[in-house]
């Protein structure tokens, strides 16, 4: 792998993200999602009163959720809407270029398949981690303004854990994008994987605590209290297995690309 060529490819990906405005609207969506959670939690009684069609004189008393609870809810929003948007914006990252024939010009240059995949992955991750940080930080700030301050440690740890979960699923999007011809197929396969893993981890927490699906749960726990967090013995396992699977996904993508660099 050659650093100069890798940088060239990454720069091209960044430029593409910028020119297609993904670099702007994806973080924007995350920020809006992030702000909405504390704001709606705070104003829920007012919203219900104004728009709920309640009979005159109804008294609404909803206890204000804790700041940590709001942040955990924000993460779960990101886990659905945010992941959907990211998977949709990256679904054609390899298959689109391959279908158009752009890869047959790039891959005859003396670059390795691994470098090409790595560049795609790095650019995807910069957008993912960046958008997640902006959105989550916005949520944290508004939670602080409206409800209460959440300590920085739990915030940071839950951010990193959630980023890892995103990285895992989006590596899947990249792998499916090299594997399948259809971009929509890649998006749905990786989102399906996310749903399946979360569901299984939720249904059988005892047996599947080592699976990547349990990372989201760890993230929710982390933001609520760092003290109770260490109790999860399988935490290390799920992290280790996720990192291993991400590596395997990248190697698999490069191998798939080597097998068919271009169509026909």
């Amino acid at each position: 792998m050659n650093a100069g060529k890798l940088l060239t490819l990454v720069q091209k990906e960044w430029l593409e993200l910028l020119r297609s405005f993904k670099l702007i609207w994806v973080p924007l969506v995350f920020v809006v999602l992030g702000i909405m959670q504390p704001v709606t939690s705070y104003y829920m009684p007012v919203i219900l009163e104004k728009a709920g069609n309640m009979p005159e004189g109804t008294v609404i008393e909803i206890p204000l959720p804790s700041g940590a609870q709001v942040l955990a809810d924000t993460l779960s929003q990101f886990g659905v809407m945010g992941l959907l948007i990211l998977a949709l914006s990256f679904m054609g990252t390899v298959s689109g270029e391959r279908n158009s024939g752009a890869t047959s010009l790039v891959l005859v240059k003396p670059i390795s398949f691994g470098t090409y995949i790595a560049a795609k992955w790095i650019s995807m991750m910069t957008l993912t981690w960046g958008a997640l940080l902006l959105g989550y930080a916005a949520s944290w700030y508004y939670t602080w303004l409206l409800i209460e301050q959440v300590a920085f440690g739990p915030f940071l740890l839950s951010y990193i854990l959630f980023g890892l979960w995103f990285t895992f699923i989006l590596t899947g999007t990249l792998l499916f994008s090299t594997l399948l011809r259809s971009a929509a197929g890649a998006a749905f396969s990786s989102l399906g994987l996310a749903v399946l893993l979360s569901l299984l981890a939720g249904l059988m927490p005892k047996y599947l605590s080592w699976s990547p699906g349990s990372i989201t749960g760890s993230a929710y726990q982390a933001v609520q209290s760092l003290e109770g967090f260490d109790a999860l013995a399988s935490f290390g396992w799920s992290i280790g297995i996720t990192v291993l699977l991400i590596g395997a996904g990248l190697i698999g993508s490069a191998a798939m690309l080597r097998r068919s660099p271009a169509l026909d």
Binding site: N2, G4, K5, T8, L9, K12, L15, E16, R19, S20, S100, G101, A102, S104, L105, V106, V108, K109, P110, I111
Partner: peptide, 28 residues
Amino acid sequence: LGYLPQSPAFHNWMSGMEYAVYAGKLCG
């Protein structure tokens, strides 16, 4: 090798100059 396929597909959002420089850098 320099290769020109039958109907070359570029990145349409790049300019001709950008693409040529990009190709050059990829060749080292």
